[in-house]
Design a binder for these strands. Structure first.
Length: 197
DNA sequence: GACCAGATTGTCT
DNA sequence: GACAATCTGGTCA
């Protein structure tokens, strides 16, 4: 079942935690790709110095200020893309960054897009999963509550929701500002989380 | 496996 | 002109 807009229209930290265990799906012309979300980071807009929305709305951050459930895809380091979902309320600039997923469907397609990667290296980082799923800057501003790119709740046989015991909370990585905020979440003992510190 | 440097471009100072 | 919510390929072990 596709997660409705009301799922995202809540406290950003809450959404970041509950996205763990949910599924990311991208329907491409070549086939459907899906994966289980195992690692996220919260970015708190105008009170969070590390957030792209911190300095207010800019031409390249307009998607961050749209309705909850909107995708925000950005380009960084001259060669990489990362994907977020807008959360809380329209106009706040809050979002959750997808840091890692566990491949479920379309693994062959992921391998084609990431020929260099083997094993867990396929999707264990924000730019890696974006590449494996075939997400590009074209998805910036698109609506993640309907196809082709969207999130679903876990299948009924999955263990969900996760307990606090199974969610590890730690500081964010890869950034230079506000690094001490405990806004990174991942599923304990899952081999697909990114390890960089 | 750990550690290090290079890639490459949009945005802000 | 500096730097970025990163990854890869090299070297050394």
């Amino acid at each position: 079942m596709i997660l409705p807009r009301s799922f995202y229209a809540r406290d950003t930290v809450q959404v970041a935690k509950e996205l763990l265990g949910c599924y990311l799906v991208n329907e491409t012309p070549q086939g459907t790709i899906s994966g289980k979300i195992v690692e996220t980071e919260a970015y708190l807009g105008q009170i969070d110095e590390a957030a792209h929305a911190f300095k207010g709305e800019r031409p390249h951050t307009t998607a961050l200020f749209q309705s909850p459930g909107t995708l925000y895809v950005y380009f960084t380091y001259g060669m990489h893309y990362c994907a977020n979902v807008v959360t809380n309320r329209e106009g706040l600039g809050e979002a959750v960054l997808l840091r890692a997923v566990e491949p479920i469907r379309g693994i062959d397609l992921m391998r084609q897009r990431r020929a260099v990667a083997k094993g867990t290296l396929l999707t264990n980082g924000p730019a890696k999963l974006v590449q494996a799923f075939g997400i590009t800057i074209d998805q910036n501003g698109s609506d993640a509550t309907q196809p082709p790119t969207y999130f679903t709740s876990p299948p009924t046989h999955d263990h969900y929701p996760l307990t606090d015991e199974e969610i590890v909370t730690t500081t964010r990585i890869g950034i230079s500002k506000a690094k001490d905020l405990p806004l990174r979440y991942y599923i304990k003992n899952n081999p697909y989380i990114s390890k960089t510190t």
